[in-house]
Write a protein that binds this DNA or RNA. Structure first.
Length: 732
DNA sequence: CTCTCGCCTGTTTTT
DNA sequence: CAGGCGAGAG
């Protein structure tokens, strides 16, 4: 392995740094994975470190896998470190190993967002909190936020809270107890419990500090406080901590990521070395310049300016389209053109968008054009109803205390065990100190109707039998038995004859079966609980096989860390991107801009950006006004295309109010304004009442959502108002 | 107890 | 438009 030949001077400086903290500020496409892998390989090969002393943390399994493989390839002798994984996977691994020391049961199950919500709803019911008054989803996100901040229920209760938070606090306390009763941890717990555990048991922390003398963290700008703390604890003793990140690509503030972690790294580790990687190896000069100019509009960044020796490349293409279908057609057309022009495979193309819902129209058009595609993300495979149903059985088998899964499966498919019976069984089980399976088996004593008793006992026996055999039998066999016994697949297949959805669901079940079989073949021993672990921690993104030749569709968030020769960013409209909720605060808007930056910098050769003048959402239509971000792109770097017929005079001229991109904006009849008082539908010509100026007529509307401005004539005077602040009401 | 119908409401992003 | 939820019938 020759570092000198493979790396540029800055990369080399980072890769050769051995002792002490290291911060690598790595711009998009600057080869950070390369540096990271070389560094680790070097630590092992040249410095002679035991690979097991190295810990490497990533955010996706895919990134972890890639890193492991690349290190392996460099070393070429199978000595690659074993502790390379996502925060969640590594934490889980330690938690299970040390469960007894942390006061946990090592067979805990992992609850995803769905399970969390189900449990929260139940807890709320027990507390007599109306889910109308307090949205369970909102409570869930508050609790999740608290855990990201390492705030436990007691601390949460002690903070000066408002009324809503006081109720969150009650739920949080009860929810946490319920989790423990269920022997379950939610996603956020995986990190938090480990931190808490380490803090409570110093000897254990010390053990792991000794074990992991060299720690690497990828995407450091995305760490939240709990993750930060975890790293901090582990690295405290030897301070051999290498973090890599890019503050310009921080796009997860909404889930607790704290950009301060990277900005203040040097404060935390004053002796640290800082290396900047600013040479970009990925994109053309044009693309990079577009990215640079856009991101410059953000304040509060460490300030990098990427450069490249790559060719200048083509202008960025901005396409105006009529509506989302037209946009889909246009994207398809451009892909075909590029393919024909330079003989490119489909896998060279990706279409990125802000919200998952946008994939639909794109899919329709791709399908119509018979262009194979794959959607990465969206509703995750392991979160689909039918898949979760089957997994629910497995979860109960592994952990019969899991009442969330128990409730899910006890009457799925219907077996005559309704609410009344289930509650009787549960009350009985709790009173007798039995788990759910035992409760079923002994349900004769629970006071059910005779037919319900029979049903419950049959289910109980079935589950107990599988639970008993789970250590000796492959996960695939257990899953097959569940599917057979419940007739789950058979029912779906019968239904599939007349319903397309049923066919899809049947396929998902078959795919699950295939996944368990694949797992059972490659794992030894192929235990159910290990399979469940994988299912819980593997995202759809990780399952994506990029070697198959097809167009990739995904959200901009999912695209981070990837690159494609041809990138399309669709739905470039105000209110959609930037998303309306983010348009009011500077911070949120800057995060949206970073997201745009991430999108731009995915492209190697060619970047297409499109927007639609009309976008159907829900039932109705929303006018599409081109995104404010478009005006931040220097005109000379842009080639404008449009499928919309314009009067010749409208072209290229500074149309109207100056914030336009040179296109005449669509003038649809109605636009929706969001105001603190709710949404308001306005249209030009409509009459409105203003609290100060009285009645008037709308002459012109600019912007949309919370940014809508209207020009209104009140008698003789014309006023421009910000709809959000004007407290208008419509009148006949 | 189960199923179906119709109403309501909601789309940001995810480990 | 779709998925969730409550009410009411069988």
């Amino acid at each position: 392995m020759n570092l000198r030949e493979s790396l540029n001077p800055n990369q080399l400086e980072a890769a050769e740094h051995i002792d002490g903290p290291l911060l690598i500020l790595a711009g998009a496409g600057s080869g950070k994975t390369r540096v990271l892998t070389y560094r680790v390989a070097q630590l092992i090969d040249d410095v002679g470190l035991d690979p097991q002393q190295i810990l490497a943390l990533t955010f996706t399994n895919k990134a972890a896998k890639e890193m492991r493989e690349r290190i392996d390839a460099l070393l070429g002798d199978g000595r690659a470190p074993n502790w390379v994984g996502t925060f969640h996977a590594i934490s889980t691994r330690i938690l299970r190993r040390e469960a007894e020391n942390f006061g946990l049961n090592r067979y805990f199950v992992i609850y995803d967002g769905d399970d969390q919500l189900a449990l929260i709803k139940r807890v709320m019911k027990e507390l007599n909190l109306s889910d109308k008054q307090f949205a369970p989803e909102a409570i869930r996100s508050y609790i999740s936020g608290a855990k990201d901040q390492l705030i436990n229920p007691e601390d949460y209760a002690d903070r000066g809270n408002n009324y809503f938070e006081q109720n969150v606090s009650r739920v949080y306390t009860a929810y946490q107890n319920a989790l423990s009763d269920n022997n379950a941890l939610d996603f956020d717990d995986l990190i938090m419990q480990l931190v808490v555990g380490f803090e409570n048991v110093p000897s254990l922390l010390e053990h792991y500090q000794e074990r992991f003398q060299f720690i690497n963290v990828d995407e450091y700008q995305d760490t939240n406080h709990a993750q930060y703390r975890l790293i901090n604890l582990l690295a405290k003793k030897y301070r051999n901590l290498c973090v890599v990140g890019d503050d310009d690509q921080s796009i997860y503030a909404w889930r607790g990521a704290d950009i301060k972690n990277i900005l203040e790294f040097e404060k935390d580790y004053p002796e640290s070395k800082v290396v900047r990687l600013e040479q970009n190896y990925r994109s053309t000069k044009a693309i990079l310049e577009v990215g640079n100019t856009v991101i410059k509009n953000n304040k509060g960044r460490t300030g990098k300016e990427l450069w490249t020796e790559n060719p200048p490349g083509d202008q960025v293409v901005v396409i105006e389209t009529m509506d989302e279908r037209d946009e889909g057609r246009e994207v398809t057309k451009k892909i075909r053109e590029e393919m024909d022009l330079s003989n490119r495979p489909l896998r060279d193309f990706t279409v990125l968008y802000r919200t998952n819902a946008q994939s639909r129209a794109l899919e329709d058009e791709l399908r119509r054009a018979s262009m194979p595609y794959v959607i990465v993300g969206g509703l995750r495979f392991f979160e689909r109803k039918e898949v979760k149903d089957i997994l629910g059985y497995l979860k109960v088998i592994v952990n019969p205390r899991d009442s969330v899964s128990f409730r899910r499966i006890v009457n799925t498919p219907p077996r005559g065990l309704g609410n009344v019976s289930v509650e009787k069984i549960e009350t009985f089980a709790v009173a007798q100190g039995l788990n759910t399976i035992e409760g079923l088996v002994h349900s004769k004593e629970a006071g059910l109707t005779p037919s319900a008793t029979r049903s419950a006992q049959a289910l109980g026996t079935f589950l107990a039998d599988l639970a008993e055999r789970q250590e000796t039998v492959a996960a695939s066999e257990i899953t097959e038995q569940v599917i057979k016994e419940t007739s789950y697949l058979r029912e779906l297949e019968i239904e599939a004859a007349r319903s397309v959805e049923a066919e899809t669901r049947a396929q998902n079940v078959r795919e699950l079966l295939a996944a368990v079989e694949e797992f059972s073949e490659r794992t030894d021993p192929p235990l159910v609980r290990v399979f469940l672990e994988e299912a819980a921690l593997v995202s759809d993104f990780d399952r994506w096989d990029e070697s198959v030749d097809r167009v990739t569709l995904m959200t901009l968030h999912n695209a981070k860390g990837l690159e494609f020769p041809f990138v399309f960013i669709a739905g470039m409209e105000d209110g959609l991107f930037p998303i309306s909720r983010a348009m009011e605060s500077q911070n949120d808007l800057e995060e949206e801009r970073r997201l745009f930056y991430v999108g731009i910098t995915r492209a190697r050769e060619r970047l297409y950006i499109s927007y639609a003048n009309l976008r159907r959402r829900f039932g109705g239509a929303m006018p599409g006004i081109q995104s404010r971000f478009l005006s931040e792109i220097p005109e000379e770097l842009v080639e404008k295309l449009s499928t919309v017929r314009h009067p010749a005079s409208s072209w290229g001229g500074g149309g109207g109010d100056g914030d336009s991109f040179g296109y005449p904006q669509a003038q649809p009849q109605q636009r929706e304004a969001s105001t603190p008082f709710g949404s308001l539908r306005l249209a030009e010509g409509k009459k409105v009442r203003h609290p100060v100026w009285g009645d008037g007529q709308i002459m012109q509307i600019n912007g949309s959502g919370s940014n809508m401005r209207a020009t209104i004539r009140f008698g003789g005077v014309t006023k421009k108002v910000m709809v959000k602040y004007a407290a208008l009401e419509t009148i006949k």
